[in-house]
Design a protein around this nucleic acid. Structure first.
Lengths: 214, 214
DNA sequence: TTTTCCCTCCCCCGCGCGGGGGAGAAAGTC
DNA sequence: GACTTTCTCCCCCGCGCGGGGGAGGGAAAA
């Protein structure tokens, strides 16, 4: 690396700011170029100074970290953003990651780990604190499905029910009579305890019985 | 750490197995206790030897890495699993992570990075290779919505359309006449280019216009 | 001020579909 | 052999809803 990493710190607590700056300045290859005490100041500073990475606290007066991060992402997408917030993993992490935030760490992080995170982020990777990673992966886990046992044929019909086709069209697609499909549909609704086709399809999607083709 | 980390390697290519074992054995604190050349052997070895962590290749004859990982997760959830596969990030990563796999690395990983991953996993964290992380986060990003501009009222009605309520019931909920809701519904279907209520709700869900409440 | 957008409400038509029944044939289970 | 499950097909009824019109009023933009 030719130049040192230029860092902007945004946090409303002076103690946190100063402490963080002190720790970071101990590290060779890092340079804390500015500090800001709320989102608005941070946004201005970032746009003016164009740091390599911004460490942002989530909860701040004036303009909070989320708003600032989203604004900065729109105006200066090349500036890396690492959210560095309290010990609680906020639900806003999902929106922030979806918006392309590169890092999310908690303040109880070890300095060495933070260094690693900063380097990872500056190198184009994404750094997630273990607790954050846990929460994100939690989202991928399947919620316990309400044990609906459909037969193979019924599953097949259910998938077709998620399409715009009428029962008559589905019937011709599957090579059986319309009444057959109607019977299957009735049984499916019965088994799933759903009042109609639309709700059945929605419930099936929620329980991952059928996939989101889109 | 009191004892060294006991590792089981499962890969159908002897070269990979031996190379990996050699690299890992250079590291103090690691112990490669066994090697297996397919999922079935790996599963047997894991259940018998109870290693701290299993490094598994995804693509193998007999029983592939996914099947083995899922089986092992059911029988011995305390054994950590790290998928260590080719340079391609397989789509199965979603299922594997949902099933609780702790690690997913690519074979082009640097030995030092792999060590870090192994230690992280054994310590109860989840390790994802940057490329894998990228792919996972990709999933959280909103796919570009097909520019459907609904009015506030229409959005409100659309959300109600995702419920089992009839238009008449929705009307009384919103305190307007049934015909009003029917008009909104017609306009919504028109704007969304959807043939009926069920498809409109599905499309809305896919495009994240409405949330999956379940 | 005229125009446009949005929300509101109304009518008619026809079909898709949910709910209720029944029934026969093949396959596997007891 | 008797029984259950699954898949197939049939009838009737009534309502929900999609598609086609039209209309009035208020608010905001042109």
């Amino acid at each position: 690396m030719v130049d040192s990493i230029r860092i902007l710190i945004v946090d409303d607590h002076a103690v946190v700011r100063k402490g963080l700056a002190m720790v970071l300045r101990l590290e060779p290859g890092l340079e804390v170029i500015e500090e800001a005490e709320n989102g608005r100041e941070g946004l201005d500073a970032a746009q003016k100074l164009k740091p390599d990475i911004v460490l942002v606290d989530l909860i701040m007066p004036e303009m909070d970290g989320q708003e600032m991060a989203l604004s900065l992402r729109r105006s200066n997408p090349e500036i890396k953003i690492m959210m560095l917030t309290g010990t609680e993993v906020d639900d806003r992490v999902y929106d922030l990651l979806a918006a392309g935030i590169e890092g999310y760490a908690l303040k109880n992080i070890e300095p060495a780990e933070l260094m690693r995170g900063i380097h990872a982020v500056v190198h184009g990777e994404t750094y997630l604190h273990p607790d954050v990673m846990k929460k994100v992966l939690e989202r991928m886990k399947p919620q316990p499905a309400p044990a609906v046992s459909l037969t193979q044929r019924e599953m097949e019909v259910l998938e077709w029910m998620a399409t715009p086709n009428t029962y008559k069209q589905i019937a011709s697609q599957l090579g059986v009579g319309e009444e057959t499909i109607r019977t299957h549909a009735k049984n499916i609704l019965e088994k799933m305890h759903q009042p109609n086709r639309a709700q059945a399809v929605l419930a099936a999607m929620k329980n991952k019985l059928i996939k989101m083709s889109g």
